[in-house]
Simulated assay, not measured.
Amino acid sequence: MADAGGGAADSNGYPDPLAMIAAIHPSSELDGIAQSLERLCRAAVDHLGMLGAVVRLLPQGGSAGLVVAAEGPGGRLGDIEFDVGEGPGTTSYTASRPVLVSNLAGPDGNDWPGFQAAATEQGVAAVFAFPLHLGAVSFGTLELFAGRPGTLTRVQIWLARALAEIGVEMLLDGDATNSDGSLSRGFTRVVEHRAEVAQAQGMVMVDLDVSLGEAMARLRAHAFARGLSLGDLAHSVIDGYVLPSDDGPTRGMEK
């Protein structure tokens, strides 16, 4: 992949990530920390030549979290790992180390078959995930999606790490809420989406008499098998669709 370029450079010739972010015009649809993180993602896309970039903020030991993304119209790269429950970002977060997958369709992508299938379907050929952490405290990940296979250059890796560090500083200095206590725009939609999935998870737990964990596993498996997003399936469950049990018929959704 081509070296990162554009923007000011420091005395060592490396690009200045702060200048890159500052040059991104703020989105009028976002505010607060969501706006700052979205500008960071857009800087990553522009200067690293990516298909998309995502910051995922994850709860300790969880895979739900909040997402801020910079990607093309109609894209949903930020939802893939939540939908399938696995991926390079989750591994990066858990292990607190970068996970660099230069060819997602190759053997390196086989560790996450659900993610591999869903991401390649959206044109993703390589994924590079960097943890957002400070010491032993992990906040989430910066995930970069490339449209063609290939490794990152030394400068690109340096820039991605620098952007991840800036993301941590933004999280420490900023807030996900506005002065009136409301969520920053950009987080609101994601929280509503996660709430719908949680509601559907509870309904499946009751309908099939299974644990919450098993209910989520069945939702993800059913969504994957039907080619649906987890959010779309959750909508259907809330509207009355009942997932089939191991020995029961499907009700409420036409095939």
Rank of each mutant, 00 (worst) to 15 (best):
P26A: 09
N12A: 10
L159G: 12
H222K: 11
A22P: 06
K255Q: 15
V155N: 05
A195M: 10
L233M: 04
N103T: 04
I238F: 02
G13A: 02
A69E: 11
A129I: 07
M253N: 03
L37C: 08
M203A: 04
T94M: 14
L51K: 13
A95T: 15
R220D: 08
E192K: 14
P73Y: 03
L183P: 08
P107R: 10
G52A: 13
A22N: 10
I33S: 09
A95I: 11
T141G: 04
G186S: 12
I157A: 12
F139Y: 15
V168C: 13
L228P: 01
I21H: 07
A225S: 11
A136S: 15
L144R: 10
G150Y: 07
R189L: 12
Y93I: 09
L77Y: 13
S92Y: 11
D175W: 00
L51V: 05
T90N: 10
F139T: 05
A70D: 07
A200K: 03
I33C: 06
P17K: 06
H193F: 09
G202W: 01
V99Y: 00
N103V: 00
P59C: 02
Q122N: 10
E165L: 15
H222S: 14
R154D: 15
N103K: 08
H193Y: 14
R189K: 13
D83I: 00
V67W: 00
G89T: 04
I157Q: 15
P15D: 01
V210T: 03
A129M: 04
G186A: 12
G65K: 00
G240E: 08
P149I: 12
F139C: 12
V197W: 00
E38T: 09
A53N: 01
K255G: 05
T90S: 12
V127Y: 00
F82C: 01
S211D: 05
G227R: 02
P88T: 08
L58V: 01
L159T: 07
G227I: 02
G62V: 02
L100F: 05
S229I: 03
R97S: 07
V45S: 09
A146F: 04
V55H: 03
L30D: 09
A198S: 10
D209S: 13
T177H: 11
L228Y: 06
N12M: 07
A117D: 08
S182P: 11
D175N: 08
E143K: 07
D239S: 15
R154W: 07
G49A: 03
P249A: 14
I24A: 07
L212D: 08
G75T: 06
R220I: 06
E143L: 11
A195Y: 02
S96Y: 03
R189A: 14
G231K: 01
S184F: 03
H235N: 13
A69R: 11
R154A: 15
